[in-house]
Amino acid sequence: MTALDLTGVPCPMNWVRARLALEELAAGERLDVLLDHGEPLRSVPESAREDGHEVTLDGNRVTIVKR
């Protein structure tokens, strides 16, 4: 499991960093990211879903399982 603290990182840089981290993972591996409330928490999970990953939220912690 990889974790990435993206609090304080605005859109779209937070998604850029999350995507590059996901690129390093194998399918089925999981990435945890911490995001700011507001636009980041609305937009990053949505972007991850659009890329086909499995996404779950727990507060401002987003868990992305690579497809």
Binding site: V16, R19, E23
Partner: peptide
């Protein structure tokens, strides 16, 4: 990619068709 590269190329790196690779 360095932090500066990430920022400079961020708008192409967010393209679904693009990637760090």
């Amino acid at each position: 990619l360095s932090d500066l590269e990430l920022e400079r190329y961020s708008r192409q790196l967010v393209l679904p068709e693009w990637s760090g690779a």
